[in-house]
Design a binder for these strands. Structure first.
Lengths: 205, 205
DNA sequence: ATTTACATACATTCGTGTATGTATGCAAAT
DNA sequence: ATTTGCATACATACACGAATGTATGTAAAT
């Protein structure tokens, strides 16, 4: 291979990132060398070092390509009449995306089970921390809105409910990715979330 | 240091395991060398290689020292009148133990955030898989018993409820261990679980 | 005297980072 | 329209440290 055009170079960059997702998810981040990724991509380490400073830099670039659409969740909550249903639908869609989108599934399984949260990965640490906090904040707003509308069951604290829902959602994705063959997340997504939310909705009388 | 008595040797074995817990949880499993552990324990690699075949063997021995008391949960469910309350109390105690017992906290944080679930760690993989399945089985029995006793809300499938509760519980422990300073799990353990279970209990009328 | 419980020393492998080589695309100068 | 020059996009080669596994040494316990 020799000098390619700019567009082709961008293509090999994407190829490296695509390959990294696969190899990382198979061998784990720390057990895969840059030579492993290069070989799997049909390149050499030279190509990787041209596009990325080192393995951590490549890993971070890989993470950058997917993100949780929190603003979208916030918009859903603001727009829709029933914030609890908005929450449910958002997470059902998210679960469906996890099942259907191989890239999302791959990267999430890396983040949950194929990497180590240590100092060296400070970007990863802060990303996850930030996402966790944002989720609780936005979902707390949803439960507060529900309470104002009389849609929240009595005695349910919005902050606590948001915490519980976050833990449940992340736990569900994590556990399912660990053993996807154990059950069909796509068909159980809505029933599972409805089970959680049924106790939080105000009882009609 | 030279030849110690049998009891002293067992003591250094424990020292190695204790030290491994700490160093693994600080640096991550794959980033810590056996030299790191030996130095932190005031020993040399020779001592580690005497007691363990290699790092994976040491890691597995470390895991062996803690286990989830599933039989205890099964007994609680069988003995107590209200299986849902038994479930709640069991997990509240478990959460409290996570907060109070440094060893448990340390090893769980390693299992959740400081190691990679890849082929090489097949023992770890099977352990986690087995624990997850057992949890769902035992808790399904609890929900089935509750249904027979008329304590389960209508329309709640025991298997689905067990799955939801497992995901919630593991997600909660995982998320809290990731950032323990964010909230006090000890005081929130019961409210969180009660929040989950309130929707699953039969409504009195 | 032999085995135990380590410490020490050594060889080898593996991964990284960097330095260098090299063929090509592109842009300006002629 | 060529040619010239340089930057680009990699491949190749090399040097280094780190970690592993093993072989050997050694003093004490049995």
């Amino acid at each position: 291979m020799v000098r390619r055009t700019k567009a082709e170079a961008e293509q090999t960059r994407s190829l490296i990132l695509d390959t990294a997702e696969k190899v990382f998810s198979e061998k784990g981040v720390s057990r895969t060398s840059l030579a492993d990724i290069a070989q799997a991509a049909g390149l050499t380490r030279g190509a990787i070092y041209w596009h990325f400073a080192n393995k951590v830099d490549l890993f971070e670039a890989m993470l950058e390509r997917i993100e949780l659409p929190i603003e979208s969740l916030q918009a859903d909550i603001a727009e829709q009449a029933d914030p609890l249903t908005a929450l449910r639908d958002f997470w059902v869609r998210a679960f469906h995306e996890v099942v259907d989108d191989e890239q999302v599934r791959c990267v999430l399984s890396i983040m949950f089970h194929k990497c180590e949260y240590v100092d060296e990965m400070s970007v990863l640490l802060h990303r996850r921390d930030h996402t966790c906090c944002s989720l609780v904040e936005v979902m707390t707003q949803a439960f507060e809105k529900a309470r104002r509308q009389g849609l929240l069951a009595a005695g349910v604290e919005p902050g606590l409910a948001a915490l519980a829902l976050r833990n449940f959602v992340l736990g569900t994705v994590s556990d399912w990715l660990f053993a996807p063959q154990h059950y069909d997340l796509k068909s159980l997504a809505e029933p599972l979330l409805e089970l959680l939310l049924r106790g939080l909705r105000a009882q009609p009388r």
